[in-house]
């Protein structure tokens, strides 16, 4: 009984919805709402990555590049091309998918570390372009993002953004769960377990991997767009190598391949720096140490370890 509840798709969504509903009640100030909104946004990006890593077994060390593309789309679209911000937002997500398709086609032939370095290179090149093409992107100092209006209603304020980002996360989570349960999701996971076996039973391995890469890029693009719109200002730092690493760390710390894991991982790495400020100059060292400790002792991630803990005690 308990096992069924813990693992069911609907339960995951209900639990997420419950947490989302409870946070504003408990948050003492809108600062906490902002942190929570960031958790939802990065969870969305981590969700995409977990589809790639958990379902398809491929890693990307350059995913912040897509975060950057999505973010700069909503900044550059209205400012330089006169496009509507909302339209730019969707165009940005679509652009991420397109770029992922173009880049992924050759890259995904590579395996393991070769794939890691190729995606890492891709991310660095995106960051470098955002840095260098100052005429379009505003350069290292960043660029202002136009406020977004929906049906004459200006989206601003911490509370509004909290619900917008939470809504986006819910949609993203529902989609991810459906992908996981769908036949293609199952084949993806077969890929993760054994590519040879999957090929043997007639799965078009390359096409599935590419599809997972494109989907994960769109997730990151949407997250980047939301981040830019919420902050109203964006710098090339968004696409930095460190951010790519953070996204991967979120997935692994939470639990690769798990929707809740992506959210927990995002919460962990977003809230942690806020908590670590009391350590002042020791912050960096402790952050590095915590990442190491989690990777070494909880390689399956927080969520699956918790799940196992609960299931082991279930009657």
């Amino acid at each position: 009984m308990l096992a069924a509840v813990v693992t069911s798709r609907l339960a995951t969504l209900l639990f997420l919805a419950l947490v989302i509903a409870v946070v504003p009640v408990l948050a003492p100030s809108s600062f906490y709402l902002r942190v929570a909104s960031l958790v939802w946004i990065f969870a969305l990006a981590a969700l995409g990555l977990t589809i790639l890593m958990g379902y398809a077994g491929q890693v990307s060390l350059g995913h912040a590049g897509f975060l950057g593309i999505g973010a700069y789309a909503v900044a550059v679209g209205p400012a330089r091309l006169g496009l509507d911000p909302l339209l730019s937002f969707f165009l940005g997500a679509a652009l991420c998918g397109l770029v992922a398709y173009a880049v992924g086609k050759p890259i995904l032939r590579l395996k393991g570390y070769y794939l890691a370095i190729a995606t890492l290179g891709f991310g660095l090149i995106v960051a470098l372009v955002l840095h260098s093409e100052a005429a379009v992107t505003g350069g290292p100092d960043g660029i202002q993002v136009a406020r977004i209006t929906l049906f004459g209603w200006r989206i601003s304020g911490a509370t509004t953004w909290y619900w917008v980002t939470a809504g986006a996360l819910m949609i993203g989570a529902a989609l991810a769960l459906n992908i996981a349960a769908s036949p293609s999701g199952r084949t993806l996971r077969a890929l993760h377990d054994s590519e040879v076996a999957a090929t043997g039973v007639g799965v078009d391995v390359a096409a599935r991997k590419l599809a997972a890469f494109v989907v994960s890029a769109v997730y990151a693009g949407v997250a980047g767009g939301l981040l830019a719109l919420m902050n109203g200002f964006i710098t090339p730092e968004t696409a930095s190598f460190m951010h790519s690493i953070e996204l991967v760390a979120m997935v692994i710390i939470g639990g690769t391949g798990s929707v809740l894991g992506a959210v927990v991982g995002s919460a962990f790495l977003t809230v942690l720096p806020q908590a670590l400020t009391i350590l002042q100059e020791y912050e960096q060292a402790v952050l590095g140490l915590l990442i190491m400790v989690f990777m070494i002792f909880l390689p399956a991630g927080i969520v699956s370890s918790l799940k196992r803990f609960v299931l082991d005690r279930a009657p």
């Binding site: 890593m53 890693v59 060390l61 393991g112 570390y113 890691a116 690493i245 991967v248 760390a249 692994i252 960096q284 060292a285 952050l287 590095g288 140490l289 915590l290 990442i291 190491m292 990777m295 070494i296 390689p299």
Partner: peptide, 15 residues
């Protein structure tokens, strides 16, 4: 997994 090992050494580098 290789990814976990990469992340461990990146954590070490930050540390």
């Amino acid at each position: 997994s290789p990814v976990t090992l990469i992340m461990i050494t990146i954590g070490a580098s930050i540390f």
